[in-house]
Amino acid sequence: MERTIEVLNQLECEGVFRRYAIGGAVAVLFYAEPVLTYDLDVFVLLASEGSSGLVDLSPIYRRLAELGHHPDREAVIVAGVPVQVIPAYNALVEEAVASADEVRFGDAPTRVVGYEHLLAIMAQTGRPKDRERLASLLEQRPPDAARLDSILGRHGLADTWQVLVGSRDGS
């Protein structure tokens, strides 16, 4: 995966996107026990919006293709790893990318969405697998309560969190 990260770093360095951070199940893996996934979800802050105001990922796909990495269904295979490039689609995800933790994978520097942001994104997304992962994460690692409360409050997720998690811990 180090080579995959080096390619992502190269794209960011070239300005193909402004900033990226690893999210999804691989971010879960960073904080907890390994869980099965096949995709490396990468949240990106785009360099610019298209002239129509629509999100345009084609510069990313085009540059990846120039580097020899081609699409496979909804992902692009980058050095053997299916990468799903996901534009930061709301204020919470933008904030998660902007404040992501700097980490290393082998010799390659990279970023992983911070733990409390990851929890908040899962609560916001709210799919069954997000709820399942959320419960598993909370069993393994308590969040920084103040940081989590701040994020949930800023993004209007306090009630959602209470519904998802409050019943679980009896609060």
Binding site: M1, V26, L29, F30, Y31, A32, E33, P34, V35, L36, T37, Y38, V103, R104, F105, G106, Q140, R141
Partner: peptide, 24 residues
């Protein structure tokens, strides 16, 4: 066992993930 796995390095977790992918 789960707690021990959670304490592995990022790189080791990815190695375990690939084993999981192969099994699955």
């Amino acid at each position: 066992r789960r707690a021990a796995l959670a304490c592995l390095s990022f790189e080791e977790k990815v190695r375990v993930l690939i084993q999981l992918q192969r099994i699955a």
